[in-house]
Each structure stands twice: as C-alpha cells, then as structure tokens.
Computed example of a mutant assay.
Amino acid sequence: MCFSAEAWQDYREYVEKYGADISIKDFVILYGDRGAGAKIKIPKGMDTPFMHATTGEAQQVRELIERFNAEQVAKLEQDLFKQSRRLADAERSLLSKETVKAREDVRIATNKIAAGRTKLADIKRTTAKPGDGRIFPGAHGLVLVSEGGKRVVRPMRYQCRPAGKPAVYDRKYPGTYNARRDNLEGFWKGQFGHSHGLMVVNTFYENVEGPAGNQVLQFTPRTGEPMLVACLWSHWTDPKGLEPDLLSFAAITDDPEPEVAAAGHDRTIINIKPEHIDAWLNPDPGNLGELYAIFDDKRHPFYEHRIAA
C-alpha cells in the first residue's frame, strides 16, 4: 500500500517539466465545492500557484482560497477564545479547591489552545515548508492525464470511486486509494486500459508493524529522482444529480522491492520510466500486454527508509 506520499502539488511543475496544460476549470469547481461546504481536503501546496493570481479563473481560485481561509481563521479564533475562558475559569477554580474536573479542564483547554494556535499559524503562513504537498487517502492531489493526445494536469481525490458505483463504495472499500496489479482486470477493469494517470512523488510513507508496534516509515529513492507513479482514475457522476461530480484516483501497487520487503512492507508503488509516459497515458484496451510490459520495465531505485517524524 502507499498510505501517504509527498507529491508535486504545484501545477506549474507539471507544466514546466512535462509540458502539461492545466484544467483550471477543475480547480474552480473543486475550491468552489469546498467553499460551499463539501468535505474536501486540499493540501496547502496546491494553493501556492494561485496566491498571487490577478486575472481570470486563477484569480477566482485565489479568492475562493482566501474566503475559505478567512472563515477557518474566524472559527479558530472563536474556539481559542472559548478555550482560553475555559482555562481561566478552571485555574481560578483550582485556586480555591482542587477538583478532578478543574484539572481535566486545564489539560483539555491547554491542548486545544496549542493545537488551535498551530492550525491558525499554518493557515496564515505564506512561506512553503516540507509536508505542504503530502497527501493521505481522502485528500486531493495532482494527476497528469492525457486528453485528446495532450498532457493535462487535474486535481483529483486520492481514493478512487469508480464511475457507475454508488457513493457508499468510499466506506465499503476504504482501501481504494491503491489498486493491486493482480486485480487490475478484476475490480479495476473499468479503468485499466482506459483511464490512466501519473502522480509525481518525491517520497512515500507506509505503516509497518515492528517489534515496538506500528511505525510509519518514509521511503525515498537513493537517486533523489521524483517517482512517476502509475495511477488509475475515474470521473464519477451522481445519477440522481444530488452530489457534485468527483475526479478520483488510485496508485497502482506491485510486489515489494527487496529493500521495501526487508523493511517489513508487502507492496510498492509502480515507478515507471519517463520514456513510457505517453504509452501509459494513452492506453490501448485491446493490448493490455503492452501495459504490463511497462510495469515489468519499471524503475528500481533503491528505496532508502527511515522512521518518519
């Protein structure tokens, strides 16, 4: 499995490195749906290229980001005021009498104030930092696809809901952020050979059970080269028209690289070679063997690992 990854979230990198166009309309829809109350998680790194936009739909995205951030700041400040008052009341109570409730109120309020200040600072900061591009299942990331023979970068949710399936699939199959190679012609037959994408990743993270219990390990190619992760994606629409459209994707996983297996994990994402990009993005459903050959010719950088902070 690829539980989370530090991925490219600035669309300009895809434009410069891979000659991609940007589907700006998708960003307007995504940020608009979030602003309207949809539970959409967007990494801060995806906001970056829009923050100085002054024209067109890019400016519209910036305004949606600013409006959403202002609402979040207002909520956090209200909660900080509430928790500060709770803390002060509990501390006054403790001056006259030691009680379990007052002591617990101090602990809870202190923790919530610290967490709230951290979130507030993160929303307000304008400088980038490591982790801005990290995505977890359920969050949105950038995916390179091909449309009419042209490379296009689109924002998609990292947990694929196949077209035609009910929305309940998100709960029924929570692991659909990854697609196993040995099940591509089974569960994923509607996407394999039809709708392919690539996610560019610098490092990925896995949960591994060790002697000391569960640990999160970070894997990074020793070469330092970004990984071109083979993905499947889908455009889901609600037949009843009650829910917004959903673009979503899954990263394909294969048997583990030896060093990943030695670290205790049983799957590895497929890191394809640059020369296979167009063949992968423009699949022939009548020649699945060619697609498997791309997997067999994947890159094998040594994935160094360390315990994640």
Rank of each mutant, 00 (worst) to 15 (best):
C2G: 10
F3G: 04
F3N: 14
A5T: 02
D10I: 02
Y11S: 08
Y11F: 06
R12D: 03
E13R: 15
E16N: 05
Y18S: 02
G19T: 03
D21R: 15
I22H: 08
I24Y: 01
L30E: 01
G32H: 04
G32M: 09
D33Q: 09
G35Y: 02
G35M: 10
G37T: 01
K39A: 13
I40H: 04
M46D: 07
T48D: 15
F50P: 00
F50K: 09
F50G: 00
T55Q: 13
T55M: 10
E57I: 06
A58D: 12
Q59L: 15
R62G: 02
I65W: 01
N69Q: 14
A70K: 10
L76I: 11
L80R: 07
A90D: 02
E91V: 14
R92L: 09
L94E: 05
S96G: 12
K97L: 15
E98V: 13
R103M: 14
R107H: 06
I108D: 09
A109R: 04
T110V: 08
K112N: 14
K112F: 08
I113C: 01
A114P: 00
K119I: 00
K119S: 08
L120K: 02
D122G: 07
A128Y: 00
A128K: 10
P130S: 04
D132G: 02
I135E: 02
F136A: 11
G138S: 07
A139E: 14
G141Q: 10
L144Q: 08
L144I: 04
V152H: 08
V153G: 03
P155G: 04
Q159W: 07
P162V: 10
A163M: 12
A163W: 08
A163C: 06
A167N: 07
V168H: 11
D170S: 11
R171V: 13
G175M: 13
A179R: 06
D182P: 08
E185S: 06
K189F: 13
G190P: 08
S195I: 02
S195G: 06
V201C: 11
V201G: 08
T203M: 05
E206F: 08
E206Q: 00
E206W: 07
N207Q: 14
V208Q: 04
V208I: 12
E209I: 12
E209G: 02
E209N: 12
E209P: 00
E209A: 12
P211Y: 03
A212S: 13
L217N: 05
P221I: 00
P226A: 00
L232T: 05
W236G: 03
P239L: 05
G241I: 02
E243G: 00
L246W: 09
L247H: 15
L247M: 15
S248D: 05
S248N: 13
A250S: 09
D255T: 10
P256N: 05
E259I: 10
A261S: 12
A262D: 12
A262N: 06
T268R: 03
H276M: 07
I277W: 11
N282W: 01
D284W: 11
D284K: 05
D284P: 06
G286D: 09
L288T: 11
F295C: 09
D297C: 09
E304F: 01
H305M: 07
R306V: 08
A309P: 09
A309F: 06
